[in-house]
Nucleic acid binder design. Structure first.
Lengths: 189, 189
DNA sequence: AGGCCCATGTAATCTGTTACATGATTCC
DNA sequence: GGAATCATGTAACAGATTACATGGGCCT
């Protein structure tokens, strides 16, 4: 039941509607969790039913009425409990790794193309995370901000997302280089 | 349907039983995918039914008979298709990130403890990956091996696992340092 | 006129986890 | 005698994805 805590954590800093939440989780960044809109709408309904969040309707002109949610006291308590519990280990789960595992038995041209696409995707996200971090810390240095700033949680998760995507980009470019060099020189098969 | 391709990729280099496969996927390393034994037994059954792998019974004395599987021609074809298809982007999905996202609203003592545990876990895996890489490349240098060695796929996925766990370890230790420094000096809340 | 954005869902399906079951052998 | 290892599963449930539905307003 991690999604429910992810939603709670996302609603700590700002009051959001399901739609806005979906943008944070799906399109935008998802630097600490990832979910589809349908899952989020369902989870918000359950969270409100269980009293961990409360919603209020906000009518808008020229836009459908939206429902903004914020975390209640017992919602915060639930998050406290979650933090105290041991976290499960996290594993990478990535189609590309499967393909690379099979690299020696499969067409490396197509594989290199996939790796290049992924490197580009990672670069886009690196720039996005970079921009978010700059916005969060404003004119302070990173160390300054981490020492004295308000709300370092989102900053820290963003740092992890950045490092992860750098890892993706670097690994992809290296793997492409390896595959291409082996196509040139005769590597054993 | 990535699990089926992960199993195929795992069976490329060696003939394995469900039990042995489970060790690779669950306990051991799972450097390119992760799954529970039950899932694997089920997937092996389906793969054999669909003709992508073939099994043969191997009776043993003083041990139950095991069934070893290897990839068939159409299994290899399936993997080729999989590699050629675009890979979905991969996202981190990690309980700890959720907890850190909520760091500013939650007991940081418990959180720091979780982060320290995770750093230790990551270190264990770093050593494991390191040892695996050394075994794979033998007395050659990494560059030498990647250029001319047979089977670089598993080596490359192992490199990704290593980098990922280094990222985890470094980020965890940094996050702990940040949280502890903020407890000392009065950070805004 | 066609397509995108806001805003919220339902339904069917697929994937993954948890709990449980069985039975022999080897190691401490 | 008890625990761990080998070897294979079933059943129930929770979590995630895919496809589909609705309807007004804005932009080109």
């Amino acid at each position: 039941m991690a999604l429910r805590h992810a939603v709670l954590a996302a609603l700590l800093d700002e009051e959001l509607s399901g739609y806005q939440l979906a943008k944070v989780f799906d399109l935008g960044v998802a630097n600490f969790w990832h979910a589809r809109p349908q899952q989020l709408y369902a989870e918000l309904t359950r969270l409100e039913r269980d009293g961990l969040i409360t919603g209020r309707d906000v009518p808008q002109d020229a836009r459908p009425t939206k429902r903004l949610f914020r975390v209640t006291g017992s919602g915060l308590g639930e998050l406290e409990d979650f933090t105290a519990r041991a976290a499960k280990p996290s594993f990478i789960r990535d189609d590309l790794l499967i393909a690379v595992q099979a690299a020696d038995h499969v067409d490396t041209g197509a594989l290199a193309a996939r790796l290049t696409e992924r490197a580009a995707f990672a670069t886009t996200r690196i720039n996005l995370f970079d921009a978010m971090l700059r916005t969060m810390r404003g004119d302070r240095t990173e160390d300054e901000f981490l020492r004295h700033g308000a709300r370092v949680g989102p900053y820290l998760t963003c740092l992890r997302g950045l490092a992860f995507e750098r890892g993706n980009r670097d690994w992809c470019t290296r793997a492409v280089a390896v595959l291409q060099e082996r196509r040139g020189t005769g590597a054993r098969r």
